[in-house]
Design a protein around this nucleic acid. Structure first.
Lengths: 363, 363
DNA sequence: TTGAAAGCGCTAACAG
DNA sequence: CTGTTAGCGCTTTCAA
């Protein structure tokens, strides 16, 4: 039955071994432990493999046997086409990919686009052939994250949710970072502050939100950033008035729309402090279109320090998004071993751009 | 031995079955064929699973048995942190993810960041637990693509390389699309044309490239776009002079640098036709910094139609990047079945922005 | 409805 | 250096 080439069925390690009249171990070794057999034999095996169209051990079978998939799962809070609109998120993903790359692992993007139904989420998460998950900035009640946690595999969370029992977190000190920016805003003389934030709840509503409600959000990142502003504002007592506007979507268009609304609601606002660069850039677009000049008529600040923000010379908080991804990936891959891993907080810096200035003196 | 909770080792379908004193089939059915057992029994199984910390059939074992991974592999030509600098690529990936999402498949990003060594590439590709690959705009000699092809799994290629035997391609007619833009450029009166293109060879060299050498590139996308310009230019005979500048990297900084160089080399150029929006936007940045006003001093055109380009009101060719990704994914997943699949060419449109105008009359 | 049996393709002791 | 043996955890006929 030694018909040359074109095997009637997919070649396997066993068929190859049979063909060569060697044991399966030998063939396996040819691929995984070259030092365990003579070079000639190894070459003979490899040559026969090529001839039979065998491209090495089946990765699935290998994973089953080795009990490890060599793959990192990535959990996002929103569909990819949406997530990718945010340069900070893109940088994060690139960072994770980078870490995977360096460790020879693959990166599996879990399809979290669908429903938020717990049942469906669990199914998707449980069907992912991965050794662990990195969750990027998902809400506290994200069902995919819950399912990942249930699965008893290592999980590293980035940004939020914070305070999960026994879960390593990679993030920044959002509250302090925003506070440092807020200090400049208030020191510049601003007292009528508009805050633009992305969603504070899982639904996609937009509009004005009472400050104390915002400070109660399950999205801790937004909440902490707003808290950072409130912290500083409280030093100024009643002088300061804060209006919070939530945008349903996180893209420039929403930012522009939100800027328009908030200025309608509270026209005496002199600064828009945004919880992301994307929203701030949207506000800039609105301002440009509305003939509002920045910063002389209105100051605008961002958060993230994306390349786009740097280009626009935005005053913003710069955080190391790509590094966060890299660290998240690295920590995850070291996790089962180094179970002692502690959460990690990375540094941020303030970028003094040209979009913050003292408020125009009221007539 | 029926110790409640905390199993000493990972629960499996078999241990669950034993615990419940039912067969493995029954447990399997509880997950995969709910209609094959009574609802009570099923609930009993599910409850016991929860109790024992069993989160459903192991995906790897399942894949081995079913002989399918339910995962699509993605092959990129460059590391992710690099690829993601290009909004068109980001859109493409989002499109593939979208298609996967809709089909309940995962998306596996193959770590192609490393060497271009054939051996290493084959190893990485062969270790990916996927049912097929989508390759995005890789060079004709990309070793990862070669390995994927060797593996005898379905492969869908996007953009390039073209003309691969028995491989479905999703793309656009680059040559015609660029020609339609070039017609406008020449009709506007431009005769001294600068072409800015991303790399034409696998190495990362930058500098001026002879036109005929550019038309011989293994990167068919770049080549075809340049060919499109050449096609139209040939109608004008010797009147037209073309200078081609290659950028080593594909990002705005490189675009800016290339714009500076090419204008130094050929100062009488009146229009920069760029093979991507990223390069065109880089050129715009350079122009703004150099006090060259667009389009009155210099016209600049792009290619892709990214959101950034629309914002900058660039004159460019708009191609449906996200749709390309979606179609590539869909076709791949339908492939083993519908083996009759044909390559697919999507439509492009010309976007008349404000960065192309007749050349300033020479003094 | 349920159960028994037969692998999917591979790796890792362990013994030769 | 090579072969034998024993599963990894699961799905799926086929019978009961």
């Amino acid at each position: 039955m030694s018909r040359s080439s074109r095997p009637r069925r997919r070649a396997t390690l066993a068929t190859l071994a049979a063909e060569l009249k060697v044991s399966r171990t030998t063939v396996s070794n040819a691929y995984n432990r070259p030092d365990q057999l003579s070079p000639e034999l190894r070459n003979r095996v490899l040559a026969a493999a090529k001839e039979m169209g065998y491209s090495g051990p089946d990765p699935v079978a290998r994973s089953l046997r080795m009990r490890r998939a060599d793959t990192v799962g990535l959990l996002l809070d929103q569909p990819l086409n949406y997530t990718f609109r945010d340069p900070a998120a893109v940088d994060f993903v690139a960072g994770v990919a980078d870490a995977c790359d360096a460790a020879g692992r693959s990166l599996l993007i879990v399809p979290t686009g669908g429903s938020r139904d717990a049942q469906a989420a669990a199914e998707v998460v449980n069907r992912a052939s991965v050794d662990g998950f990195v969750a990027y900035s998902v809400s506290g009640d994200n069902p995919y994250l819950a399912a990942a946690l249930e699965r008893h595999v290592p999980v590293v969370v980035c940004d939020q949710p914070t305070g999960l029992e026994g879960v390593v977190l990679v993030g920044i000190d959002d509250r302090a970072a925003m506070a440092s920016l807020a200090k400049h805003v208030l020191a510049a003389g601003h007292r009528q502050i508009g805050i633009m934030t992305m969603r504070l709840t899982t639904d996609f509503r937009d509009g004005v939100v009472p400050l104390d409600e915002a400070l109660d959000s399950t999205f801790s990142v937004q909440r902490d950033r707003i808290q950072g502003i409130a912290d500083v504002a409280s030093d100024y007592g009643d002088e300061v008035s804060i209006t919070v506007m939530q945008t349903g979507s996180h893209n420039r268009e929403s930012g522009a729309a939100a800027a328009r609304s908030i200025m309608e609601v509270a026209p005496n606002i002199t600064v828009l402090v945004c919880t992301s660069d994307v929203l701030a850039l949207g506000a800039m677009t609105w301002a440009a279109g509305a003939g509002v000049s920045v910063p002389s008529d209105l100051s605008i600040t961002g958060f993230d320090g994306t390349r786009d923000a740097q280009r626009a010379d935005l005053t913003t908080v710069v955080q190391p998004s790509e590094l966060k991804g890299k660290r998240a990936g690295e920590i995850l891959m070291s996790l089962p071993a180094a179970h002692s891993s502690r959460s990690e907080y990375l540094d941020t810096t303030l970028r003094q751009g040209s979009t913050l200035a003292p408020p125009r003196r009221r007539p």
